[in-house]
């Protein structure tokens, strides 16, 4: 573990806590894409399949349970909780996110580190996570301005993988044979997709107004 990865995990944790806070306390998911949340639930479900078969550390297992629990409960809230569901913007959240799942699965079957069931699904989760934010970014474009909590959520979610890139650079220089091109490229693509959002976020943030 290094400071970059810890900062990345804490940023990721903060993003799900901000979203849970918004949904649980003010019972609103306005501006939040259910489709992105569904994709993230699939990302964690396929990435943490080894949670019971391979123990890495208490921290690792605990964080996996937190991310699995939070992503599925957010989907549940947005789909089935009456008050929250009422604030879901179904008409605007129309990105065909299932069209992202199949290409990621095919790509994982073609490009992976090991051709085993767990490894292919793990690689699939990497590719899917790289594009999972697209429905949310499209929804953002349509709803124009969003409340600060949603803006913070997207900012933190985009930032965590950027910190992971620093972690990979650090590990590359400190650990022999630490080379994971697939993870690195997927992580880079994922972070670059936020570039546009980061630009506007910092513009508005510096301006002191909400994110538009």
């Amino acid at each position: 573990m290094n400071i970059f990865r810890l900062a990345g995990d804490m940023t990721h944790l903060a993003s799900v806590l901000v979203l849970l806070l918004k949904i649980h306390t003010i019972k609103s998911c306005a501006g939040v894409s259910l489709r992105t949340q569904e994709l993230y639930a699939i990302v964690f479900a396929t990435r943490y399949l080894d949670i019971f078969t391979s123990f890495v550390s208490v921290y690792n297992t605990f964080m996996k349970l937190v991310f699995l629990g939070s992503s599925f409960s957010i989907v549940w809230y947005m789909r089935y909780h009456k008050a929250v569901h009422r604030t879901y913007d179904r008409e605007q959240d129309t990105f065909r996110h299932w069209f992202l799942v199949l290409p990621c699965l095919v790509l994982a079957l073609l490009i992976h580190e090991k051709f085993t069931f767990l490894e292919v699904l793990w690689t699939f989760s990497l590719y899917l996570e790289a594009v999972a934010i697209l429905p949310q970014l499209v929804l953002l474009q349509r709803t124009r301005n969003i409340d600060n909590l949603t803006g913070q959520y997207i900012f933190l979610l985009g930032g965590y993988r950027g910190l992971y890139i620093l972690n990979w650079i650090y590990r590359y220089f400190t650990e022999p044979h630490f080379v994971h091109w697939i993870t690195w490229i997927a992580g880079l693509v994922q972070t670059l997709l936020y570039a546009d959002f980061f630009y506007y976020y910092f513009l508005r943030f510096i301006g002191g107004r909400g994110v538009e």
Binding site: D9, D50, T53, S54, F67, W122, T183
Partner: peptide
């Protein structure tokens, strides 16, 4: 910290 799948990151 290496898991059997080689993945020690979240």
């Amino acid at each position: 910290e290496e898991a059997e799948t080689g993945h020690d990151e979240l």
